[in-house]
Amino acid sequence: VAMELWGYRAMGGSCLRPFSCELGPLSRPDGSAAFLQGDTSVLAALYGPAEAKGNRELPERAALEVLLRPKTGLPGVGERSREQLLRRTCEAVVLGRLHPRCAVSVVLQVVADGGSLLSCCLNAACMGLLDAGLPLASLFCGVTCALHPDGSLILDPTTRQEQEARAVLTFAIDSAEKKVLMASTKGACSMEEMQQCIAAAQSAADTIFQFYRDSIRRRYSKS
């Protein structure tokens, strides 16, 4: 069932780019989602819980694997590091103990990179998990904040804004208590600026979770 929804919300001077999500665009995986944030687009496919192959089997919980495929070329060190961030974020919310000795793999394919790629990957992964119907402790969303040299804060920056920025901070916020699940920063900033960014990300998270809810509602109300 293809479904699209557009959200554009003003956020106290700074706003998120329009985002849209298509749930279940692929037929083979157990869950899939295409997430669009402005010009950034990521396709997520989720397989599992399935039988774990080789020595990846864990005796008391599901083994999670995240594969991040860049738009062109082969994955490098940067992708590996992001895979680790994404995997540990997913592990924190997936109730893996319900599926011991199973494997879950999340494959993320970058379709277009127009800035805030990591947060788009996080959102696509979460929608993929939702579409697969895996039991989760909470949802999570990714928000990228850029600190402009003039001191202003830009949410969900484009590639150009990221390049101009003094610091770019990406957070994953959980839906249960709005706490920080994951943090990754580029560039240097002060403590106060980071706290500002966390606060901005937390309020932006509300918008994104509402969008998640709307997309799921539309998907299940039609079919």
């Binding site: 680790q84 961030l85 994404l86 995997r87 540990r88 974020t89 997913c90 592990e91 924190a92 901070l169 994953a172 959980d174 249960a176 208590e177 706490k179 920080v180 699940l181 994951m182 943090a183 990754s184 920063t185 240097a188 900033c189 002060s190 403590m191 980071m194 706290q195 966390i198 606060a199």
Partner: peptide
């Protein structure tokens, strides 16, 4: 200069802003 050069939290338990502080 007490600038934050990196805050690296690869997933795991969620923390509040105060705990990070």
């Amino acid at each position: 200069e007490d600038r934050l050069c990196s805050v690296h939290k690869p997933g795991g338990s969620p923390l509040t802003g105060a705990k990070l502080q």
